[in-house]
Structure formats: structure tokens, C-alpha cells
Simulated scan of single mutants.
Amino acid sequence: MEHENPAATRPATAEWPAALPAVQVRVARPTDRLDEVVHFYRDGLGLPELFRFEEHAGYSGVMLGLPGAAYHLEFTSHVDGSPCPAPTADNLLVLYFAGPADRDAVAERLAALGHGPVEPENPYWATRGAVTVEDPDGWRVVLAPEPVFS
């Protein structure tokens, strides 16, 4: 069921709200396949590697930029394994592109690494022309051909 997005009528802002004066955002998650996951996000999606650490209190990890250091993803592994449950088909990282050509270039690079498109859980993405792929842990990335709002 498609519905209007009320946020689409509001202008986006590059400024953080005064009530949340954060200067960096990190989304972090554990994995038992650190090398494979980094290969997917760094070499497949094209995110630059910002920092890497090993054996810090049993943890190793890699931070990848979205873009640069202000927004980044962190993937960690622990010597005892990950306590993280498997994701659902609707746990998503959505990346919006300026057009279908950019979306296609990234989708083709991922497919060449063995990560072809999968059927989205939510049919909304297919109706918008988005391509959904899974990383080595089963977490999904949506490659949308255009921004929802700007």
C-alpha cells in the first residue's frame, strides 16, 4: 500500500537540530564474517575505509565512511562470535542515488562480486525502481534510483 510521505513536503536541512547537536553518526553492528562484510561494503558499494582496529578487548572492527568521517558504518567481530540474531528481510540500509545510471553501476559492481538482486520484502521498493541486495550476513541494502525528498 503506497501512501504519501509528509516529510516529502518539508525541506531537508543540513543542520542538526539544536536539541541534538551531534557532530558524528555511527551505525555499528556485529558480524562473524568481518572480511566478507568489509569486502561487500568497501569494494562492492564503494565506501572508503576510515579506520581499522584489531584485538581491542577481544574485538576487531572496521569503520567505513558515508561519505567521510561524519557519517559512518562500523562492523565488529568478537573472538567469541556474534550474539546478534539473523536480520529480517526488512532490515534495510537505503542508499539514494541521483539517477538510475548511478544505481545500476553500483548494482553491477555488487553482482560481479556475487551479490545479485533479491526480491524486496516490501514491494514499495520494486515499484520505485530500487534494487535490493544482501550482504554476506543477510542484511539488505536498497539502491534507490532517486531521493525521496531533498
Rank of each mutant, 00 (worst) to 15 (best):
V23W: 12
A70H: 11
R140T: 03
V38H: 00
G68R: 13
S150R: 09
D35L: 02
P87Y: 01
T9W: 06
V94Q: 08
Y59C: 10
R42W: 08
R109G: 05
R109W: 05
A89P: 00
F51M: 11
A112E: 14
A112F: 14
F51Y: 13
T127S: 14
A12T: 06
R10S: 13
S150L: 07
G46C: 09
V25A: 10
D90S: 15
F75H: 00
S82Q: 09
G65V: 04
E49M: 08
G81W: 07
P120H: 02
N91C: 10
G99I: 13
A28S: 15
P48V: 07
V62Q: 01
L50C: 02
M1A: 15
Y59A: 11
G116D: 11
T31I: 04
P30E: 15
P17K: 09
L50T: 03
F53S: 06
Y71W: 11
W139H: 03
M1F: 13
T76S: 13
P6Y: 04
A18T: 10
H39F: 06
A12N: 14
A28E: 14
A144D: 15
L20W: 12
V23L: 10
P87I: 02
A144Y: 01
W139F: 10
Y71L: 12
P117G: 06
D35F: 03
V62T: 05
P100D: 14
C84D: 10
E36M: 05
P83H: 10
Y71T: 11
T132N: 04
A126G: 12
Y124P: 03
S82A: 08
L113G: 02
E119A: 15
N91M: 11
G99T: 12
Y96A: 14
G68Y: 09
M63E: 09
L47Y: 07
A28P: 06
A69R: 12
E2H: 10
A111H: 04
A70E: 10
V25Q: 08
P123I: 05
D43T: 03
M63V: 01
Y96V: 03
L66M: 08
L45M: 07
V25T: 09
L50D: 02
L45P: 00
M63G: 00
L66G: 01
V62F: 04
M63P: 01
R140N: 01
W125D: 00
V148R: 12
V118P: 04
S77W: 02
H78Q: 07
E134A: 09
R10E: 05
E15F: 10
P83I: 09
E36H: 05
A130H: 04
Q24L: 07
D35E: 07
L92K: 02
A7M: 12
T9S: 10
S77M: 09
L92R: 03
Y71F: 12
A101H: 13
L93H: 02
P120N: 03
E49G: 06
V79A: 12
A144F: 05
A112G: 14
L113D: 02
P17E: 07
G99S: 12
V62S: 01
P83R: 09
T132A: 04
L113A: 05
G116P: 02
H72R: 03
M63F: 09
A70W: 08
V38Q: 00
A144I: 15
A14Y: 15
